[in-house]
Nucleic acid binder design. Structure first.
Length: 490
RNA sequence: GGCGGGGUAGCCAAGUGGUAAGGCUGCGGUCUGCAAAACCGCUAUUCGCGGGUUCGAUUCCCGCCCCCGCCUCCA
């Protein structure tokens, strides 16, 4: 089945192939955070989408080289540093650290490189690109000393967003230096130093200043990935002006098609509105964790809807994510018990097809892929209920799970490891998971409860179950004895 | 005004020119001392609205309504 993605440029689903058809190498550039405050879960929806994209491409045998930029100089970072009374680099560092911490929490695979806009290497590259644009007549220095891109000289400007330049309207959200620019749509490549910038400045042929926002991506992308990249991703709000500007700058310098495929992620909504810093309707990862949810539950909640559809964030949705993951966890536990010592001898039988991967091939249709997973869960659960699943097949299911989980990364985490306490009170490990140490108090209560049950003292047994519950553990009676697990989200 | 995305059960959501996957919730059943989990069953004669094409449309075409986003800070 061919890999197909919706290319924003053509507005069509297109078959994807690497630049070099004979090579599995793919270069991806993804727009990263501006580190002026903590990223919110709407931002992370885009990063989760990119993670899914990368992991699926890798599952399909491609060698992905991914770059994500860190914007660490712009109006907001400068203002934030000024207000905090600390140097810019110190101000941005805390949000860089927080970004990686949050990304790890969501099990987002690290990009190969995280270039920062303030790295002198890229400042130099930006300056050389701007010089090239000026020499080609595609840019000019205005009276305010800033350098602007001359969009009227770049015929393709507006092609990505499908905008007609004559119809661009100012929304009044941003102050324009309309007197200095030739065209309202001309965007800054180099911003001349202003006293509000303080000591944030770099030397350039046009005087001291700092880079415009868009040029950094063109510079870092071409510096690290070359003149042409396979896939470029971002949120839909980056289509215009940011990605439009990137095309103009990059192609203006190189004369080559900059990006072969543009993929854009729809917004995360809150109460039907875009989650954004400016509206104040946002949650950060720590906000959601504080409500008792785990990183993988957030991951599930952000990943389960196709990336091109708006996704409404709700606490009900978080609860659904938790319950769905619980279902997967229970299934894995049953399979591991069923597989027993055959657990490592799993081999994929022919009936374990590739429907999961096939679904993702179609523009990352995660809903269809998860639908197939849950159908598989029902099917194998039924077989286990009927005692028709042998250990080898159970092991094969687990092997299949390991395969698709390379993309999903939904396995229980360290903080939520499942363990068994048999009636004897002995600790037993399930499958390949490492058991979390059951607190001695919990183990003691569990043992006491097992004894009460043997004595048919159900009143005491129920009281002990309530106590375990209060401690965040769940006691369940199975035919193999009492089972103690961490409660969901605990 | 221009350019996009979306509207499928209580909620989330897939999908196809041939009669609606899956998840969550709820209800009934099996199992259980009771639960839990799992399994079984039930829950949209219908896919925003109105036309058209067709033997047949949720799916294609035309018109309209609603929601969200972008139009130079935004993932």
């Amino acid at each position: 089945m061919p890999l197909r993605f919706f290319n924003t440029y053509s507005r069509k689903r297109e078959e994807f192939a690497p630049r070099d058809p004979g090579s599995p190498k793919i270069d991806i550039y993804t727009c990263g955070p501006t580190v002026y405050s903590r990223a919110h879960i709407g931002n992370f929806r885009a990063y989760i989408f990119e993670d899914l994209l990368q992991r699926h491409l890798e599952a399909r045998g491609f060698k992905v080289h991914r770059v994500m930029n860190i914007t660490d100089v712009d109006d907001k970072t400068i203002r934030g540093a000024h207000e905090a009374g600390v140097p810019l680099t110190k101000f941005t560092q805390q949000f860089k650290d927080a970004f990686f911490k949050d990304a790890d929490m969501l099990r987002i695979k690290r990009a190969d490189e995280y270039p920062a806009a303030t790295d002198q290497r890229y400042i130099d590259k930006m300056i050389s690109m701007i010089s090239a644009l000026i020499s080609k007549g595609l840019a000019y220095q205005a009276d305010d000393k800033s350098v602007y891109f001359r969009i009227n000289k770049f015929p393709n400007y507006g092609k990505l967003a499908h905008f007609n330049l004559d119809e661009l309207q100012s929304t009044g959200r941003v102050k324009h230096d309309e007197y200095d620019k030739e065209h309202i749509g001309d965007f800054a490549l180099w911003k001349a130093w202003d006293k509000e910038d303080g000591d944030v400045k770099w030397d350039s042929p046009w005087g001291p200043g700092r880079p415009g926002w868009h040029i950094e991506c063109s510079a870092m992308a071409t510096a690290l990935l070359g003149d042409q990249i396979d896939i470029h991703c971002g949120g839909v709000d980056n289509i215009f002006p940011h990605h439009e500007a990137e095309i103009a700058q990059s192609e203006g310098v190189t004369g080559k098609q900059f990006v072969r495929m543009w993929l854009h992620c729809a917004h995360l909504l809150v109460d039907g509105q875009k989650m954004s810093k400016s509206l104040g309707n946002f949650y950060t990862i720590p906000d959601v964790l504080a409500k008792g949810y785990t990183g993988r539950e957030i991951r599930y909640a952000l990943m389960r809807v196709n990336y091109r559809d708006p996704l409404n964030f709700t606490w009900n949705g978080m609860q659904e994510a938790r319950q769905s993951l619980e279902r997967i966890d229970e299934w894995l536990d049953r399979l591991r018990e069923c597989a027993g010592d055959k657990i490592d001898s799993g081999r994929i039988d022919s009936h374990f097809g590739h429907e999961f991967e096939d679904a993702l091939d179609n523009d990352l249709n995660i809903s269809a892929a998860l639908g197939f997973l849950f159908e598989s869960i029902s099917e194998s659960n039924r077989a286990m209920d009927e005692n028709k699943l042998d250990a080898k097949t159970a092991a094969a299911w687990l092997t299949w799970w390991e395969r698709i989980n390379c993309v999903l990364r939904f396995e229980p985490g360290d903080a939520r490891v499942r363990a068994l306490v048999a009636q004897t009170g002995e600790l037993r490990l399930t499958g390949t998971l490492v058991a979390e140490k059951i607190p001695t108090e919990v183990a003691r209560l569990a043992k006491e409860r097992a004894q009460a049950r043997l004595a048919k003292d159900f009143r005491k047994s129920d009281e002990l179950r309530d106590k375990l519950n209060a401690l965040g553990w769940e006691a369940r009676d199975t035919k193999d004895g009492q089972k103690i697990t961490r409660r969901a989200g605990a």
